[in-house]
């Protein structure tokens, strides 16, 4: 396998863009799982896809359409004071339904639709790279401010309320950040790859991490390594990137699960069984 292909000029921009996505999404996933709202990743990704398609049909910038629709959904969810996965499940099916209807009735959006749902990372350009890089910088600064507040509100739910303060603005800020991150990521790696990068590294990190800080590192490392492997396989075997990443992540998740069971002794042979 040629491990230098990803550094060739034609593939370098898509590779770096995806690497940024693979570093950023697991971090967002850690906090979405903290709030037991991991389904938000799929909801925001589906809505971003729907927004992008709508923008393409209207002749507007695709990225703006994705950002706008997922951002409106995050704001509406915060305004309605809905928490948990129920609201996100509704948003997810709404995004999927709208996308499929647009694809069925607007043949011009067909190419973009394939890119969004199959995850054709190789079609990303410098605009995707720079927008993702800018988001990574802004997101890192925002999360430095938000992290303790989100954790505190989860572990000591009355802490803000007892002091007459509201945590709503912190949740809204994070919702908007997650929506924007998923919109940028979906435009690059597609819906299911974005969701997988939020969900799987976080699931592994929650099982293996001994502290929050360590778990964040585990999630990012798992996401980036799986991404590099998937990118290389997709490139050298001429396969669509999104499904390859999803399959890679499933293999990684299964391996982590087996390792965990072995570590806890639950997969050792039971001597009472024949």
């Amino acid at each position: 396998m040629n491990w230098t292909a990803m550094f060739e000029p034609m593939f370098f921009t898509p590779f770096v863009t995806g690497l940024l996505v693979a570093a950023v999404l697991p971090v967002l996933g850690m906090y979405l799982r903290l709030r037991e709202e991991w389904l938000a990743a799929l909801a925001f990704a589906q809505l971003a896809a729907a927004g992008s398609l709508a923008a393409a049909i209207a002749g507007a910038p695709v990225l703006v359409g994705g950002l706008a629709l997922s951002g409106v959904a995050a704001t509406a969810k915060a305004w309605l004071a809905q928490s948990g996965n129920n609201g996100y499940a509704i948003l997810m099916v709404a995004g999927w339904g709208a996308s499929v209807l647009m694809l069925a009735n607007a043949p011009l959006a067909d190419h973009l639709g394939h890119a969004l749902f199959d995850g054709q990372l190789y079609f990303t350009d410098a605009s995707n790279l720079w927008s993702m890089a800018a988001f990574a910088v802004v997101g890192a600064l925002l999360m430095r401010w938000l992290s303790r507040k989100l954790l505190l509100e989860r572990m000591f739910p009355d802490f803000f309320r007892a002091s007459g303060l509201s945590a709503a603005r912190y949740h809204l800020a994070f919702d908007l950040l997650a929506a924007a991150g998923l919109a940028f990521a979906t435009a690059s790696v597609g819906v299911m790859a974005a969701f997988t990068l939020v969900f799987v590294p976080t699931m592994i990190a929650y099982h293996w991490g001994r502290s929050w800080r360590q778990s964040l590192s585990i999630a990012v490392v798992v996401g980036m390594i799986a991404y590099v492997v998937a990118f290389q396989i997709a490139l050298t075997q001429d396969q669509p990137f999104g499904p390859v990443l999803v399959v890679t992540m499933v293999i990684v998740a299964t391996a982590a699960w087996i390792l965990r069971k072995l570590a806890s002794g639950k997969l050792r042979r039971n001597p009472t069984r024949p």
């Binding site: 903290l34 572990m155 990190a205 929650y206 991490g209 001994r210 502290s211 929050w212 800080r213």
Partner: peptide, 10 residues
């Protein structure tokens, strides 16, 4: 919330 990977110090 014991599934949350938080240390005592954190």
């Amino acid at each position: 919330l014991r599934d949350i990977p938080l240390s005592g110090r954190e």
